[in-house]
């Protein structure tokens, strides 16, 4: 079967994503079902998907330092055999570099040397040199950067997450153009599924916080009575 139609069966068996990320009340397919379908991937493609997850999954690296993450991703990235995926991963890693720099700046960190900012892609040096500018002088390349900086400064975590997830969602949609039934389409589907899943988890977290607030208020009322 031609590469372009290699995964027609797999892609067709998956429910489509909604156009707008925030219209999705839940993931279009359960994790169990998705993993069952992904067993149809051939060995090499399954390995590539695992590698992509290895590089991108924030949750596996959440407890690590920037240095650890840079080393981890740098180790796995060259093993991804497909140039399309390497570019896609690099886009995400550049985005994370920018967000990490914004967060460091908000915490009052000031880079002392030119190699102080750890990250990926073309921008670490530029970020260091323009540390005090709201958008690191990169607003022309990343129009969303100024808004992200504002949200970080105002500590609006949920709004920031919404902005970033929506950017990623739209970027995947653009990157998926022209890929309908090939491996790229499968990977983009899985990555978009992850984005929805993360957004749903954000909401779950917000709901839990709200629940805890209500419980605290009730407990205070009980104590007063």
């Amino acid at each position: 079967m031609h590469k372009k139609n290699q995964y027609t069966l797999l892609v067709s068996s998956l429910p489509q994503h909604k156009r707008d990320l925030f219209d999705s009340e839940h993931t279009p397919v359960s994790e169990i079902q998705l993993n069952k379908r992904l067993q149809w991937l051939d060995e090499e493609d399954a390995r590539d998907l695992a590698l992509i997850n290895e590089v991108l999954y924030w949750s596996t690296m959440a407890q690590s330092s920037d240095d650890d993450f840079v080393q981890h991703a740098s180790r796995y990235l060259p093993q991804v055999s497909n140039e399309f995926f390497r570019r896609m991963i690099m886009w995400r890693l550049e985005m994370r570099t920018l967000i990490a720099a914004l967060r460091h700046r908000q915490q009052g960190v000031v880079p002392t040397g030119e190699d102080e900012v750890k990250g990926f892609g073309r921008w670490p040096l530029m970020i260091t040199r323009n540390w005090q500018q709201a958008d690191f002088g990169l607003g022309r390349h990343f129009p969303w950067l100024e808004e992200a900086a504002r949200l970080i400064d105002e500590e609006q975590a949920l709004a920031l997450e919404k902005l970033l997830l929506n950017l990623v969602w739209q970027q995947y949609e653009r990157q998926g153009f022209g890929h309908y039934f090939d491996f790229e389409a499968v990977v983009i589907y899985v990555l978009r599924w992850d984005v929805i899943n993360r957004w749903r988890q954000c909401e779950a977290q917000a709901a839990l916080e709200r629940f805890n607030r209500i419980v605290d208020q009730c407990m205070l009322q009980v104590e007063h009575d």
């Binding site: 069966l9 797999l10 067709s12 068996s13």
Partner: peptide, 9 residues
């Protein structure tokens, strides 16, 4: 293949 996939969904 697309038809079979669609039947699953």
């Amino acid at each position: 293949q697309a038809a079979i996939g669609a039947m699953l969904d």
